[in-house]
């Protein structure tokens, strides 16, 4: 099954805007819940876990589980507590990566 066939958008006439996730553009309904909109747009994994490096996606949709963590403007946030706004540039939640100096 194609990703977009996993979900049915009931409000088909909702105005759509473009957001970026991990560098890729997605057309999603404006004002929709960000986590739900990205899921319905076919985003499979929102982040990779720190220890095992496996993918995670929204689980509770009510702010409790933190599996939908993403990074917006340098701050990690729960996508399920955000709304779609035009031009949002979303990254998967930050992992250990090169910072101001090389990793120890």
């Amino acid at each position: 099954m194609k990703p977009d066939l996993r979900f049915e958008l009931l409000d088909k006439d909702a105005p759509r805007v473009t957001v970026r996730f991990a560098g890729q553009a997605y057309d999603v309904p404006e004002g929709a819940n960000l986590a739900a909109a990205l899921l319905a747009a076919g985003v499979d994994a929102f982040r990779q876990t720190a220890h095992r490096g496996v993918g995670r996606a929204p689980f509770c949709m009510m702010g409790a589980c933190f599996d939908c963590l993403v990074e917006v403007d340098g701050v990690s946030r729960q996508a399920c507590l955000m709304q779609v706004a035009p031009g949002l540039d979303i990254r998967p939640a930050r992992q250990l990566r090169e910072g101001p100096y090389a990793a120890r």
């Binding site: 099954m1 009931l10 409000d11 819940n33 739900a36 319905a40 949709m61 009510m62």
Partner: peptide, 24 residues
């Protein structure tokens, strides 16, 4: 913990808040 596994409440919240229904 696999992507694609959610709580039933999560699916209901998607329906209530965003008008998005899980298929199959």
């Amino acid at each position: 913990t696999l992507p694609g596994v959610m709580t039933a409440g999560a699916a209901q919240i998607m329906l209530k808040q965003s008008g998005i229904a899980v298929r199959e």
